[in-house]
Design a protein around this nucleic acid. Sequence first.
DNA 1: CTATGTGAACAGCTTCACAGCG
DNA 2: CGCTGTGAAGCTGTTCACATAG
Lengths: 214, 214
Amino acid sequence: MQKPRNDIPTPSVRRLSLYLRELESLQNEEYDTIASGQLAEILGLTAAQVRKDLTYLGQFGRTGVGYEIPTLVKRLRKTLGADKTSKTLIVGVGNIGRAIATYSGFIDKQFELVALFDSDPKKIGKKIGRKADAISILPLKRLKPTIQKHKIRMAILTVPANDAQDVADRLIKAGIRGILNFAPIHIEAPDNVKIRSLDVATELEQLNFMTASR
Amino acid sequence: MQKPRNDIPTPSVRRLSLYLRELESLQNEEYDTIASGQLAEILGLTAAQVRKDLTYLGQFGRTGVGYEIPTLVKRLRKTLGADKTSKTLIVGVGNIGRAIATYSGFIDKQFELVALFDSDPKKIGKKIGRKADAISILPLKRLKPTIQKHKIRMAILTVPANDAQDVADRLIKAGIRGILNFAPIHIEAPDNVKIRSLDVATELEQLNFMTASR
DNA sequence: CTATGTGAACAGCTTCACAGCG
DNA sequence: CGCTGTGAAGCTGTTCACATAG
């Protein structure tokens, strides 16, 4: 008996995201079609892998020609949910939080930054961002009402490691379904809440290891 | 015939790094020994995985007891190269670059931030960081001499996507062996130069995908 | 002749399960 | 017993190679 698998493997999802971004920047170019090999070349992958990934979108490549870029972009957007903007919030307006908040506005338009939170009373009420779409920093007690009012699904967590689990718990209680965690600590969460951690220290350490030996 | 494998798998290296950090913060606690199951619990892993990872350090766990924390820490440091500080530089002093430069001084002391670079003439000469160990921003033409003088092996790349490959090429020519890239683009490099990319947009998109369906 | 789509082989990691040791 | 160390089994993702389509 085969295990029925109709979801997309995590590594493929990551690459689909790369394809989308690359193709969007290619869209205004002269070509209106692209072959798996070309895309692979640009992104440092193999042609077979690109093709396999793209089959998760259904089949629509043209044999002997390649993939129609506009169609491909449309399908990628649809599959990844990039055809609608997703509301997000940031907790912790320190250096990293602020950097992400102001990061190329906000990120490719696909994500809308709805609110900023911090526990430091001195920061409350201050605004981040350029004039028109500057966003005020709110106290943590406003977390739950804000999340529920705007139906926010994802949060970016950029608080110190000591506070990370507490804040995560509050986010989860308030209904958040996904957390992008920058604190260098493991966040405990129920299965229906997804956590992704970006850990600069660990990445540096890995790089250090890879370049050290031999 | 077995494939003779004396290197450590990449996923294991990442976890070894997590073990080290966790154990360092546990070192002043009452316990001087830890079992694979406990460590696994803290980090959200399985006991078997922890044990398998730790065998890459050689065998020194005590049956029925666990691992001696000081010994374990020592071996982890040695294996990961965390027993000596590694010199690093940052190119691109925008929001992210600045955030990382000032990030908990600098990162656990294992990495020493030797220099900062930016292409913007207005930023040259400015200093980042607290008084005593503030670091001046240098122009890109100082890249090569600085890298060679200090024998810097790793670089953190926080420039805009458009400049990333150019700067990477210059870093590589100057002798850099590993690059931690924050630009949302694939960096091309020879095999003997390791690239690790942290891509916030892609991570967010993945999280969005994972929390969207069902 | 070119490039897709895909079953099948392969490789790499993780999990299992248990022998061995204090 | 309790917990390590580890072959073996299991899974998942990648690569191969080729039938297929235009």
